[in-house]
Amino acid sequence: MAWEPRLIVIACHWCTYAGADLAGSLRYSYPPTVHIVRVPCSGRVEPEFIAEALMRGADGVFVGGCHFGDCHYKEGNYKAIRRFKLLKKALTDLGVEPDRVQLEWISGSEGKKFAEAMTAFDARIRELGPNPMKGGA
């Protein structure tokens, strides 16, 4: 069977998750490779979540949060971006393409943006090919 990427999307409840909902109700389509995990805020995302997903063979991990100034908990997204930058560095050091992970701000009203971001992310991961850690670790 041909390889299909498996994408994990960790979405903030207040924005990206709502954006995904909106994408659905507006009938924008996005790839079925996307699997969403809901968290209350992008600040809840532990780098370990992303690492675990990659280690378990996810081909890409996408984290979606609120735009700056819009975080429901004031500044969770600032904390998210800080952690995310460190994680990207660590991944590079470990030999994982940093492009396999992405952080993006998608609000609850941006259903279209959500669908587009998912489509673009899927395309990018297809270019990168399967996660080298798959089957290993």
Binding site: G43, R44, E46, E48
Partner: peptide, 26 residues
Amino acid sequence: AGCGVCASACPSRAITFHGFTTEQIM
């Protein structure tokens, strides 16, 4: 208010964020 920032940052994993525990998300 339940944002979970502390739970994600705790190096000793001493903070449980009820409803979105590390175990649940993992």
